[in-house]
Each structure stands twice: as structure tokens, then as C-alpha cells.
Design a protein around this nucleic acid. Structure first.
Lengths: 104, 104
DNA sequence: GGATTATATGCCTTGACCAGTATATGCATG
DNA sequence: CATGCATATACTGGTCAAGGCATATAATCC
């Protein structure tokens, strides 16, 4: 699990960007408007997302259109996988308990 | 999605602690040995994990036994959920493609 | 109860990150 | 080709977190 995945995701603005890009690709200007950040700050966050492999860029004249790339998030999902049984076990036990008590 | 979840998980030592505590509960001393960290540093990381709700403590004489609490990780899993379809769609498409080509 | 073991906290320094301002780059259009 | 629009980078100041060392707290044992 590379540290860079976490260092990218720790920033709330970058997570907000991913939330927006999950819906559809957007230009830098759209993101600036949506996030109420300055344009340079937005561009810097996009740089971090790019370097981390979370987004890809396409040119459209002067505009740059950013698209989400889910690969690093899939890695995060894989990291989380072995923990998942910890709460699934609990829920299973709860479910069994409820099923059992319902029979009475 | 509270920021504290991310700020806890960004540190590699804390993630290593969670990996260890996923197997079984451990004392502070065991974690110090396993992580090759100083005892104060280890205690400080455990404080952060405690405050974030990632672990729980039980007293055993002078020892403190730490146990993992998966609740915040379940929250992380929930945050990840809407993104999951991004790579599932890709895999589904790949799967359909393979199924189709196999028929020829 | 004094020494020892196990753990927690305080203080300090260092390094990283974020946001703002200014500036640079690059495309487009009259 | 000069001007304007869209985006990227450089530089800077302020904030915060991590680790080291010293010390405090608390339980045990002789």
C-alpha cells in the first residue's frame, strides 16, 4: 500500500474533487467554481491527483478536462479487504442473533 | 466523512499497528517490539488511534491491551462504496468481452 | 514502602503541506 | 501578431504533525 494514496486522499478539497469527477469529467474552471477555491490552488490539487494517478487530463483548446481514474481507489479497496470481515462477522452474529430470538 | 479518519490512517506506523491488531489484541510492549519504535512514540500513536475510535484499551495489571475497533474502517468502506462501481463496471465490461470472444 | 516494570505525557525541533499572490505558458481570435 | 482567456508554476508565510528525550503516573513485588 503506497503512502502516496493516503497523502492524496487526506485533503478534503481533493476528496471533494473526486466526488465531483465521479459524476462526470470537468474542466479546471468548473472545479474552481464548484469548490470555491482559487484557480492556482485548484491546479495544485489537480497536480497532486494527477501524480497519484487518480485523474487523467485531456486537452480541449485552452481547457483541460479532468477525468477520474479509479485505479488507486481500487488499491485502497484492496487494502481494506482483510479488515472487512471484522465488521461483517459482527453483523453476521447480530443477524443470527436476531433470527434466533425471532423464533421465540 | 470526518477528516479524523484520514488523518489517523495517513501514518504508516499507525496502519502497521492496525495490521497487527487485526490478528489479535496486543500490549504496548508487543507493538513497540514489532514496530521498532520508541515506547513514547508508540504510545502517542496509540493515543491517536484511541481518539479516532480505531482501538479500545483494557487494563491488565501494568499492561494495557489494545484491541481493534473496526467502526471507523467501516465508515471508510462506506465512503468508498459509490466509487466501487467505477472499477466494477470496467471489470464487468472486460468479463463480458471475454465471454463474447470465447464463443468464437 | 522502595525499587522495578509498563505505559503515558510534555516540551522542543524539524520537516511537510496548504493557501495566497504574482507570474509564466499556451491556445485562440480579431 | 496583439490581446485575452484558461491553466500551470514559483515563491512565501503560517500551521501542524512526527519523533526524540526527559519525566510523570501507576501497578507489582520483595
Amino acid at each position: 500500500m503506497p503512502d502516496v494514496i493516503w497523502s492524496v486522499l487526506i485533503d478534503p478539497h481533493r476528496r471533494a474533487m473526486l466526488d465531483l469527477l465521479r459524476e462526470r469529467p470537468r474542466t479546471v474552471g468548473e472545479l474552481v467554481d464548484a469548490l470555491r477555491l482559487s484557480q492556482p490552488t485548484t491546479s495544485k490539487h489537480l497536480r497532486v491527483l494527477r501524480d497519484g494517478g487518480f485523474v487523467q487530463v485531456a486537452r480541449d483548446a485552452q481547457r483541460r478536462v479532468y477525468t477520474i481514474d479509479p485505479a488507486p481507489l481500487a488499491e485502497l479497496d484492496a487494502w481494506l479487504a482483510p479488515y472487512r470481515r471484522l465488521w461483517n462477522d459482527r453483523l453476521d452474529a447480530l443477524g443470527r442473533h436476531l433470527d434466533t430470538t425471532k423464533e421465540n
